[in-house]
Design a protein around this nucleic acid. Structure first.
Length: 491
RNA sequence: CGGGGCGUGGCUCAGUCCGGUUAGAGUACCUGGUUUGGGACCAGGGGGCCGCAGGUUCGAAUCCUGCCGCCCCGACCA
């Protein structure tokens, strides 16, 4: 983009919006709060889906699909669940339109009112648990490990491309278990899967943790999460995994006969990640020139730009390019040979950098003469000339190196942006100054958490799972605390 | 729903305070030519009910009234 990443948060929002549009990822729809994901943006989601889906399968899960519509009465069955989602539900009340009698156009037919309203799913726990009742009778039916890829609708007041839209795409896993321990283990296992995905695919370091009661998912006993840090110093929840206890089993009367012949409610988990991850990817790695995509998720991993004056020259280059591409294709590298004659090389360089393609190969007459190619990497913006017959193998190594490098860069940034503080003054100073994660002692009460949120807009992102025991005093109340929790302003 | 900002060719905007020729620029687009190792240049061309409706005026993008829409900030949230 050739524009510096702004540090002020409003400017950062605008910069982000501009980047999303310029890189051809998505745009706002005319439909309230909805987003159109354009082909380039969607192809990143497809890459994410492929990787995640394989991880789910490898951990024993299978895919299924449940209805978009949820009868209102289902949603009402779990008290805290309905309370959590009631304010943001889209509701279907009628099933037919008709021509208005006064000729003013089309109108909702008042005679076509539904007896029971249907809610467009904001999440599928209720309809799935209503279904599970019929699927589970015995311990032999357990565990039930199902995932669904779907869209959901939450009527958000304020939307942002990818980070929060009225409709979004996600995957939601819903599992049923015979014991509490097994369910907790499942929730933690899926948190590990998300962590693995974030760090090794997205090159995004995350903190694994537990949510406080205030931030817990509506209907969960415990919410685990991964929290990431964006380049403007704000935190982003990148994924959640919930231990639901027996809440939904009780609400939907899902019992099983144990080996001992006793009847008991089953134990549940649910877990999900969304297209928000694309937003995370953008905000974690982009630089002044545009997107920086980790090679493992880049829809195009290598772009090849020929530099030519004549058709003859292009033909000679194409011959060499085909050899390199054939070699790379053996390793399942996705490539684009940008042989358009309508744009100049400099234009193409800038365009593919904006789109975050990790590696660019340029071949011109000079290279044909010397038997070389120019290889440029997106993350460091450096380039080197190398022998043509070594290009393929070097590019493979380079892709790995880029993947590691952007991860390391993000780790370093997060380290610099995580501050331990021991007083409330310091706490506020850090939040208003460099921002980022603030590790502080907290007395464990809702009231303190709410007061801090009210005064500073910072929330407890999580209680890190690996938080060391450390006695201290709550920065707000001065009461004793046994470990630090992570605060931040968040998306 | 509150606070701020904005609506002018596809996009980004100037012009509005202080009304006055045919409404401008950059960019994108089309044609021709020269170019091509970091976002090309020259020449020509097409494209506007200035958000909508009403009012004031000899005359409105500009002033007044109402409405609609969008963006940013906050409340809500993945």
């Amino acid at each position: 983009m050739g524009k510096e990443i702004p540090s002020r948060s409003e400017d950062y929002s605008q910069w982000y919006n501009e980047l999303v549009k310029k890189a051809d990822l998505a745009e706002h729809s005319d439909v309230r709060g909805c987003m159109i994901i354009k082909p380039y943006g969607y192809s990143i989601w497809e890459k994410m889906q492929q990787a995640l889906d394989k991880m789910f399968k490898d951990t024993g899960h299978v895919n299924a699909y449940f209805p978009l519509f949820i009868p209102k009465s289902y949603l009402a069955k779990e008290a805290s669940h309905v309370e959590g989602f009631a304010k943001e539900c889209a509701v279907v009340t009628h099933y037919r339109l008709k021509n208005a009698e006064d000729g003013s156009g089309i109108m909702v037919d008042p005679d076509a009112k539904l007896e029971e309203e249907l809610i467009i799913r904001p999440t599928s726990e209720t309809i799935i648990w209503n279904t599970y009742r019929g699927w589970i009778q015995s311990y032999r039916d357990l565990p039930l490990l199902i995932n669904q890829w779907a869209n959901v609708v939450r009527w958000e007041m304020r939307t942002r491309l990818f980070l929060r839209t009225s409709e979004f795409l996600w995957q939601e896993g819903h599992t049923a278990h015979a014991t509490s321990e097994e369910a907790v283990q499942e929730a933690k296992k899926m948190l590990d899967v998300y962590t693995d995905f974030a760090e090794n695919w997205m090159a995004l370091p995350v903190i694994k943790g537990v949510k406080t009661e205030n931030e817990r998912f509506a209907g969960a006993v415990e919410t685990f999460c991964i929290e990431a840090l964006m380049q403007d110093g704000k935190a982003l929840q990148a994924g959640t995994s919930h231990f639901l206890g027996q809440n939904f089993a009780k609400a939907f009367d899902v019992k099983f006969a144990s080996k001992e012949g006793k009847l008991d409610y089953v134990w549940a988990t649910s877990w999900g990640v969304t297209t928000r991850l694309i937003g995370a990817l953008i905000m974690a790695h982009s630089d002044d020139d545009g997107l920086v995509l980790p090679p493992k998720l880049a829809p195009i991993q290598v772009v090849i730009v020929p530099i030519f004056k004549s058709d003859a020259e292009l033909n000679a280059i194409t011959e060499k390019v085909n050899e390199i591409m054939a070699e790379l294709r053996k390793h399942n590298i996705t490539m684009k040979f940008d042989n358009r004659d309508t744009q100049k090389p400099g234009f193409k360089f800038a365009e593919w950098e904006l789109k975050g393609v990790p590696v660019r190969i340029a071949i011109g007459p000079r290279d044909l003469e010397n038997g070389t190619v120019e290889v440029a990497r997106r993350d460091t913006k450096t380039k080197q000339v190398m022998k043509m017959d070594e290009a393929a193998v070097n590019v493979l190594l380079l892709l790995d190196e880029i993947q590691k490098n952007i991860y390391q860069k993000a780790v370093k940034y997060r380290g610099e942006m995580t501050t331990k503080v021991d007083s409330y003054d310091e706490f506020k100073k850090v939040l208003d100054g460099k921002a980022g994660f603030v590790a502080a002692h907290w007395d464990g009460t809702k009231e303190t958490e709410a007061a801090i949120k009210e005064e500073t807009k910072a929330t407890i992102r999580c209680i890190p799972l690996d938080a060391a025991e450390e006695s201290g005093k709550c920065v707000y109340s001065g009461k004793p605390s046994s470990r630090r929790v992570l605060f931040a302003r968040a998306y």
